[in-house]
Amino acid sequence: MKIPITITVNGKKHQAEVEARTLLVYFLRENLRLTGTHVGCDTSGCGACTVLLNGKALKSCTMLAVQANGHEVTTIEGMSTNGTLHPIQDGFHQKHGLQCGFCTPGMVMTAADLLSKNANPTEDEIRHALEGNLCRCTGYHNIVASIQHAARAMNGASTTELPKSKVTTGELSMSE
């Protein structure tokens, strides 16, 4: 049996009929073809499907599309405006916070939730906020740096560079 729903996604109202068992993530990916939201696991462990539901981060594999009826969803496709990257997206670009890009949309959405609640998070607070999102490429170091960069850009946050990241790869400090 199909159930009619109305969900506002990235500011645009969508009406559709879905099976009751359709997860929100599949509604976004398959019905709306918003494939930036990814599926990385089947146990809500990886966070690649994270979106914002009414502004709060949510793993879209944990919710049925019918449960999102009448609510507002923001996906990674809704973060930039007129081709200009959101400061969080730009932070990931500036600080090399992504490699293969698969976990990235979920990381950006989780970061958006964090920075909406805490404009000036410490390194520990950022790491704690990211514990629901797995990344296998970056070792998280540059994701943390990216979010700090975004916090500074968005909120004038005073977070400094990662205290221990005196990385000097670029200086080739040891070469003779």
């Binding site: 696991c41 089947d42 146990t43 514990e131 797995l134 990344c135 070792g139 170091h141 994701i143 943390v144």
Partner: peptide, 20 residues
């Protein structure tokens, strides 16, 4: 599964100190 196989998450790791 990701509930049972433990991979490092952000709060399991420090910032790395890298040089070359």
């Amino acid at each position: 599964s990701y509930m049972d196989y433990t991979m490092p998450r952000a709060d399991d790791l420090p910032s790395f100190e890298v040089d070359n």
